[in-house]
Computed example of a mutant assay.
Amino acid sequence: MAVSTAITGTAAGVPFRAVPPQGDPADAPVVAAWHLMDAPRTEAAFAAALPLAGLDAWRIYLGLPMHGARLPEDGVDGLMRLGYEDAVRNLYGPISAQAAEEFAPAYAELRSRLGFRDGPIGLLGGSLGSAVAQLVLAEGGFDVAAAVLVSPMSQLSPVVEAMGRRFGVTYPWAEPSLEIARRLDFVARADELTGCPATLLVVGEEDDEPGFRAPARRLRDALAQRSVEAGLVIVPGMGHVLAEEPGTEPAPQLPEAAEVDRLAVDWFSRHLG
């Protein structure tokens, strides 16, 4: 009999929130999801914003390093200080790298504990969480049937430039940060993303054009040129975030997030099997 309540805890040190399927939990597919650095910025808040309502699958929301239960000792202030010191080398690079690296052991432990099947999975990520999903796809060796990337970080450099415009600073690129940018340039790495046959990119109409919307179009085009079923949807009225601040606890779903949820459920229902 299917379990109806969410299961929370840690797996291989990674905080998670797992929502069981409506049907047979041993035979349902799995969607792994990573939240944004902006709201919603924890696994619980992301699960409330994008619950994948009506999708008969395991929905496993994973907490990013340096967020939620794993904030630095001095909390949000410490996280912000690291960002001001060097957002690429202190935040974007290490958070995405660690989250992608810790997914395999966390997934293995969750499969052992929850008993879900070992088969093609779905990947869902928002903003920096989308970079984690793409790293897992490119480097993780998983059988991925479908991916949904929301407010996606398709290329790091334009994102950093967008943040610079927002805060009135110019980021001092150097070789260590350029190396991170190359790793997180998924347009350039499109050949490594073709193992997933169906990828949907969802961007807000009010999100930054050069930082997010234009790179999403470039990634969609690069994937389509490589025979991937690649979709791009612009959600009217949506900016970059998917929940109200502070974005750390479950909150009422915004209308724009409900539309993203509907799009993701439709995509996974058609492609995840």
Score class of each variant (00 low, 15 high):
Ala2His: 10
Thr5Trp: 13
Pro15Ala: 00
Pro20Phe: 01
Gly23Cys: 12
Gly23Ser: 12
Pro25Asn: 03
Asp27His: 11
Val30Cys: 14
Ala33Phe: 03
Trp34His: 05
Trp34Tyr: 14
His35Val: 05
Leu36Val: 06
Met37Cys: 08
Pro40Leu: 03
Pro40Lys: 01
Leu62Phe: 12
Leu62Gln: 08
Pro65Val: 11
Pro72Arg: 06
Val76Trp: 07
Gly93Asn: 15
Ile95Tyr: 00
Ile95Gln: 05
Ala97Trp: 05
Ala99Cys: 10
Ala100Trp: 02
Ala104Ile: 10
Ala106Asn: 02
Tyr107Ile: 03
Tyr107Glu: 13
Leu124Ala: 12
Leu124Tyr: 06
Ala133Asp: 02
Gln134Tyr: 13
Leu135Asp: 05
Glu139Pro: 11
Glu139Gln: 07
Phe142Tyr: 00
Asp143Arg: 10
Val144Arg: 01
Ala146Phe: 01
Ala146Leu: 05
Val150Arg: 01
Val150Cys: 08
Ser151Met: 10
Ser154Cys: 15
Glu161His: 12
Arg165Ile: 02
Gly168Met: 02
Trp173Lys: 15
Val187Tyr: 05
Ala190Cys: 00
Leu193Gln: 02
Gly195Ile: 04
Thr199His: 00
Thr199Asn: 04
Asp207Pro: 12
Pro210Tyr: 12
Ala214Cys: 14
Pro215His: 11
Arg220Val: 15
Arg226Gln: 05
Ser227Leu: 09
Val235Met: 07
His240Leu: 09
Leu242Ile: 02
Gly247Asn: 03
Pro250Asn: 04
Pro255Cys: 07
Val260Lys: 06
Val265Ile: 08
Leu272Phe: 07
